[in-house]
Structures are given as C-alpha cells and as structure tokens.
Design a binder for these strands. Structure first.
Ligand code: FES
Ligand code: FES
Lengths: 148, 148
DNA sequence: TATTATTTCTATCAAATTAATAGGAAATAA
DNA sequence: TTATTTCCTATTAATTTGATAGAAATAATA
C-alpha cells in the first residue's frame, strides 16, 4: 500500500511547476528535473500522463515547455494522483465487482470500499494550491530565520 | 496504491478461522484454503506472518492447526494488515524521515503523513469482530430469505 | 517404538508490475 | 537552417508479489 514514484514525483513536479512559472512563459521539464533531482527522461513520461489528464498545457518546440491548465485552487490532489496512478481503490473489486464472484456477500469488500472512500475524500478535499501555500510559507519562514 | 493479496487473503482467512473454530479445536489451513479458494501453500506463508505477529496460535502435529490468539474484538484490522503488509504508510519517508534529505521542508511528506494517519485511524477503529458480525448477519439474512 | 499426519521453515522460482533509459520523430522559435 | 523542446515507442533493469518444493520438527496414534 504505497504511492508509486510516478505519483510522488508527479505531485512534487506540479508544485514546482506552479511555483516556478511566471505568467505565460512555460517551464522546461529539464529545469524541473534539475530542481527536483529527477531523471529528465522519466519526468517526460510523467508529464505525458499529466497532459493526457488535462492538468497541464504543453507548448512544443524551442522555448516550449509546460504550464498549468487550470488555477492551482481548481486542481485537486485526487485529480493529480488519479492521472498518475489510475483510479484510487484499494482492491480491484471496489470499482469492478464483477471480477469477484462473491462480491455481493463479501464483507471485506465493504471494508475496502469504505477505506477507499476515505482516501478519496481526503485527496479531493485538498488542492494543489494548499500545498503551494504551505511551501511558500515554509520558504518564507526559512528566510526570516536569518534576520532574527 | 493497492492492498496486496497477502493482506486480502489473510484478512478473509482470519474471518474464516474465527467463524469456523469451535472452542479449542484448531482449524486446518487446508480447510481454510478450500473454503476461501486459496492455495494451501501460499496460505502457509500468510499464517506464518500472522503467527509471528502473535495474532494466531499454532498447534503442530497431527490434528494440529490454528486458533485465534485473542478474542476477535481485541484484534484490530490495523494489526492484521500490519502483520501482513508491514507498517502502514504511503511513502517510506513518513516512517523514516532520514531516507529523504529534504524531509523537513517537504510539503508532500506532510500530505502523505496526514493521509497515512487517516488510514491507520480507520483500520484501528474496526476489529475482526465487526467483520464477523457483519458476515454472520449477512449469512442469516440469506437463510431467512428461503423462508419468506 | 514406529508410523503417519500435520505444521514450520527455508530456499527458490515465476510472473507481474514498476522504474528508468534510450533514440529518434515532430514541432517551433531563433 | 539550426537549436531546442515535447512527443512517441521500444527496451531494459529492478523490485515486488505470488506460488512451489521439500526437509525438519512435532504430536497423535497404532
Ligand atoms: S475480495 Fe473482492 S469481493 Fe471479496
Ligand atoms: S518525498 Fe520524502 S520527504 Fe518529500
């Protein structure tokens, strides 16, 4: 029961993208990879998935790169994780009861269903903006420390 | 972000064990495997883990088998899942901050921490007995249906 | 005591999934 | 025309998960 690197790296990259894009100038994957200490090639894949899910806008060619497609407060963490890891459910049969012949009787399915709902609830109730604000205030506090 | 078969099979087997053990006579792994449509050999592993975690008592030799070590209402689902899948955390650095050099600054870690806590909360607040009662009442309803 | 049924332990193999790399095509601004 | 970027497809590497085999230990039973 772990979040994969795709999900983890992707979320961090979305925060990085939001913080480092000024206006309409796109951000290079290579820059995000450098700042986040990630492989450029692997990050390409991740942004492919984010793009496909409509969370980022891409500009091809020289001086191209990526931009957020929506405002950070309109992007829930659930959307980001779903884009990168698929629909959130702890067991397959929560989404697709047909794969378990005894799904109707199975009490553990109800349990996993309930827990999956909790997880979805949590991730839907936080937006990318929440993380950005946390990040920014944390950085500001770090700076202030030097003046105290 | 999935529960592995170990966790799923193990939980179902604990319910099976609790429901099918009468008094102090132990239950064979082979019987549980039959009823739950699981591989006997694989189930051995699973019970090895449950035993190691002190959730079941084993009786070796002929007419041996397994018994619950505690009353079902004293066994939380968190204990069972932890025994089978290890400590519940969505990313390694939640339990062990040292593996991420920037753990103190990382806002995504706080997020995963929070969500991992929710999951633990949920699984700690339900016991094996809850599932057994659900199962029993479900079976009773099924039986009643024939008499209506 | 010898035999048999049963669990436990360890080692290993197979399959599936995830993570990462590589190379080049397509697009586009300089 | 060139440099720089995303996009696409394939391949490889690493890790995790699922399953098997067989020897050792142990207790009941004949
Ligand atoms: S595990 Fe799928 S229905 Fe029980
Ligand atoms: S991912 Fe581990 S601290 Fe950020």
């Amino acid at each position: 029961m772990k979040i994969s690197t795709k999900g983890r790296y992707g979320l961090r990259s979305m925060i990085d993208l939001a913080i480092n894009s000024s206006g309409n100038t796109p951000v290079f994957i290579s820059d995000i990879a450098k700042r986040q200490h990630l492989s450029e090639k692997y990050l390409e894949h991740i942004f492919g998935a984010l793009h496909k899910a409509g969370l980022v806008r891409s500009i091809r060619g020289r001086k191209g790169g990526y931009l957020l497609q929506k405002n950070p407060e309109e992007i829930t963490l659930s959307e980001i994780i779903t884009a990168l890891e698929g629909k959130i459910s702890l067991v397959e049969c929560v989404l697709d009861p047909d794969i378990c012949p005894s799904a109707k009787k199975c009490v553990t399915r109800d349990l996993w269903q309930g827990l999956s709902d909790k997880i979805n609830e949590y991730l839907s109730s936080h937006t990318l903006n929440d993380l950005i604000q946390m990040q920014k205030s944390r950085e500001q506090n770090d700076t202030l420390m030097y003046y105290i």
